[in-house]
């Protein structure tokens, strides 16, 4: 498996999830993927599939309805992975700090490696954050990092931590 790891570091694919931000950072991520800043120089492709991604770009303070999805997406990304919190409200809650339906930053839920400042964060800072994330990705091992707040039970299968039930499945009886 070490064979594949070297290739993953050369072309880190990103997964983007909006956990309740104002769209400002999301369009800046799109602008960073666009021609002027061109993140694809670093081998980055925006994928929609968590199972093929290495870097998890999250925007927004975690709202109550998106937290299960956030943890579930996080647990589905294979190790080693890096989480980048883009923007003020993702890092610390920003202007939404203390509002009744938010959770003051995503590091209440999942371990965050890089915090990108700015409201809204600019493509320049997103590139900086990604470069830092790449450095961290190289030093990371394949040990499983648990999210802090879980919705399901932790299971071990044959001395190994299983990722299967870490995030509870989404209830379909919401309405």
């Amino acid at each position: 498996m070490k064979f594949f790891t070297t290739f993953r570091k050369k072309s880190p694919w990103i997964l983007h999830y909006n956990a309740g931000s104002c769209n400002g950072c999301d369009i800046e991520i799109l602008a960073a993927l666009g021609p002027k800043f061109d993140l694809e120089r670093f081998g980055v492709i925006n994928t929609g599939n968590p199972k093929q991604s290495d870097i998890f770009l999250v925007t927004g303070p975690v709202t109550y309805r998106s937290r299960e999805r956030l943890v579930e997406l996080y647990t589905q990304i294979p190790e080693p992975k890096v989480v980048v919190a883009v923007g003020s409200c993702t890092s610390t809650g920003g202007v939404f700090r203390g509002m009744y339906n938010t959770e003051d930053g995503i590091d209440r839920y999942i371990p965050v490696d890089v915090y990108v400042a700015g409201c809204a964060s600019s493509p320049q800072l997103i590139i900086d954050g990604l470069v830092t994330a790449l450095e961290i990705l190289e030093t990371k091992s394949k040990a499983i990092e648990k999210p802090f707040k879980l919705f399901g039970a932790i299971e071990t299968i044959g001395n190994k931590l299983s990722r299967l039930n870490m995030a509870r499945k989404v209830d379909n009886d919401e309405n």
Partner: peptide
């Protein structure tokens, strides 16, 4: 059927 409440933060109350 659409579920639109994923980004509800509570700005009006704040």
């Amino acid at each position: 059927d659409a579920d639109v409440g994923f980004v509800h933060r509570g700005v009006e109350l704040a």
